[in-house]
Design a binder for these strands. Structure first.
Lengths: 366, 366
DNA sequence: ACTAGCACTCTTAAGTTCCGAGTGCTAATA
DNA sequence: TATTAGCACTCGGAACTTAAGAGTGCTAGT
């Protein structure tokens, strides 16, 4: 059965009212709120049909209606008003994003905090899975027992480490090692740093003190760390604001899932939002993780430069303010991309068209 | 009135039983558990007196007894058994501490995670307030538009940054700037980097492109960041394991206090534990922050090198397993000190004497 | 000084009653 | 034919009642 215009309006009203109050919505309330001039009895008939069609359900026989995941999906895909941020909000976001950008990690953890504050839900920020390699080596001789390793990576970041040794090194050895590493260790991945490579470098440098091993270890460590995606979680406690997490058991389960590396946000790799500013919504059972089956997740992706994408996600009850959250995440992701990425993102302050991808509501039919 | 030996035993039994069960403790339970050969009636008399003395209280007339803050204080100061960690526990801690130590921040956030996991309470780790300065400057020329700033700090860490410019710099200028910065910018604090100093350096280097300003900005930023104490919070959700936080309101209040920078752990500056391995316990109302008035806090300090001290703290209900938490934090702080600090800490695996400082229990008399 | 016994208290769990929001249906209306 | 008014009915939750049991304080006996 096709869904009539009026049914759509009613469905939207139910979803929005339920999002606002967290209480089942009755026919009377809708008759008053939504500006369609008909009485509660008419609404009742329509509601009954919406229940039949699977968009709504009743907690018990004589209660109001509550949206099903399919109802939310319909709302998100077709009914939802695209929300614009206020000037204050956009300014706040830009200000916070500008604050510090020198280390990627600190920025990303700030972004998750920001996302959580903006939406009042717990938020997760993931760094991109990348394949950076070392672009350039430098060793700085400090004194007989000390030198500094400086790695410039292909992602255009720098990592450095101070090495303190119980033995003496001479300046010449340090210089020799630097050029050997520049020759042999640039442009390769962590697992290409084989014992064989280390050994041959060691011999070439005439290094009997194990310096080569120390440096190589740092290379492996750095590359591994930089290329491993990391998740930052913020505002888990905000979950407790939501009446659906009144039960400490439930709250605790979700919270510990999230903080225990529950960075399982991307549902299936290909499903993640592709373009910058694109937002993806996963409603209740659409999530793969068991722990998220009755929560919803909104994800935006950002351009982290170097052709890699990171993710920002927000977790909340299925009764989530999808419209507001989607708008905020999209804006945030765009702003972040502009600062980190290649600059193909739309200009500052601009509202890019919000693309929301989702499943076909009918697939929930069963 | 002096407290008799038997009363002490009974008090200890009440506290321990209450810590275990979170239920008011009855006379019968004590008669059985504690190995003192007397009947429940006798215990009842003793309990009544302990209530009079202020060590215990009854939630209502016909319920068991619960320790007051003063009771806990007495327990912590005099009654508590010093707990030793198992071999597995010490090994686990050492293993985790060894895992990565290259960046201080990552370590400290790991430590807070570790502390939380070990104790099953939320944990907070604070970096030390320090006064590090730049010890040595290096500028690495990469190409005409790019160079790397490398700062070696007095705290024996290295910070680096890649600078990309729209204009060309020549290798000679970079070399000149490096030596000028080494001469003028080492050993000073962030606020000694005055516009005057920058300006004179700029002229001396014959720098018309603003490179000096860029480098100076990085110096200020780095020094400020390194010297500002930061707090890392982990495991807030573990609060929900505790029956006293069954009420979401209460849990939420404390959690948002903690995550909102509630790094107000050190009660009054001088009160913080002084020596490494020393542990301080703050029970309920002994805390200054309103939000902590009915929670307890255990704090240990670690030696962060360079004559500075950081803190590790754990927050939980007043019914906290003080003995276990104190032992774990003390060990953790010692291990961390050994790795970061000057090495005056006791050797690996050793249980250093656990010094627990606290208020005089009598001051709660009122 | 300690203990056994007992009446008493008070909380919590379980059962009961009651109210009202919201429904579905039917009959009347435009 | 679509809408509306009216009405009996359902069912969950709040308020109240009751019953059980844990733990006490006190008294009298060892």
């Amino acid at each position: 059965m096709a869904i009539s215009e009026r049914k759509k309006k009613i469905l939207a009203a139910v979803v929005e009212e339920y999002i606002r109050t967290a209480e089942p919505v009755g026919s009377k309330a809708i008759a008053q709120s939504a500006g369609l001039g008909c009485s509660s009895a008419t609404i009742r008939n329509e509601l009954a049909e919406l229940v039949n069609m699977g968009y709504l359900e009743q907690p018990h026989t004589s209660a109001g209606r509550v949206p099903t995941p399919m109802g939310y999906r319909m709302y998100v895909n077709e009914l939802m008003q695209q929300q614009k941020l206020s000037l204050e909000e956009t300014e706040e976001i830009n200000r916070r994003l500008n604050a510090r950008l020198q280390q990627l990690d600190a920025t990303i953890s700030d972004v998750s905090r920001l996302a959580s504050q903006l939406t009042d839900y717990p938020a997760l920020a993931l760094t991109a899975q990348s394949a950076a390699s070392v672009k350039r080596f430098d060793l700085i001789y400090v004194d007989a027992n000390t030198f500094i390793i400086v790695l410039m990576l292909s992602s255009n970041t720098v990592k450095s480490k101070l090495v303190h040794l119980p033995i003496s090194v001479d300046q010449d050895m340090v210089r020799r090692l630097a050029s050997l590493f520049n020759a042999g260790f640039t442009g390769i991945t962590a697992d290409q740093v084989t014992p064989l490579l280390i050994h041959s470098t060691e011999r070439a440098a005439d290094d009997t003190m194990g310096l080569t091993a120390v440096i190589a270890a740092f290379v492996i460590e750095t590359l591994t760390e930089v290329n491993t995606p990391t998740a930052f979680l913020s505002g888990e406690n905000r979950l407790l604001n939501q009446p659906e997490f009144r039960d400490p058991e439930k709250a605790h389960k979700l919270m510990s899932y999230l903080s225990g590396g529950g960075y399982i946000l991307p549902p299936s790799e290909e499903d993640a939002p592709a373009g910058v500013g694109e937002v993806r919504v996963l409603i209740g059972p659409e999530n793969v993780a068991e722990e998220l089956k009755d929560s919803s997740v909104v994800i935006a992706s950002y351009d982290a430069g170097d052709n890699t994408r990171g993710l920002i996600g927000v977790v909340g009850p299925t009764r989530m303010d999808y419209s507001a959250v989607a708008a905020k995440l999209s804006f945030l992701a765009a702003g972040l991309s502009r600062r980190l990425g290649g600059g193909e993102a739309p200009p500052e302050g601009m509202h890019n068209k919000l693309i929301i991808k989702g499943d076909d509501p009918n697939e929930h039919r069963g």
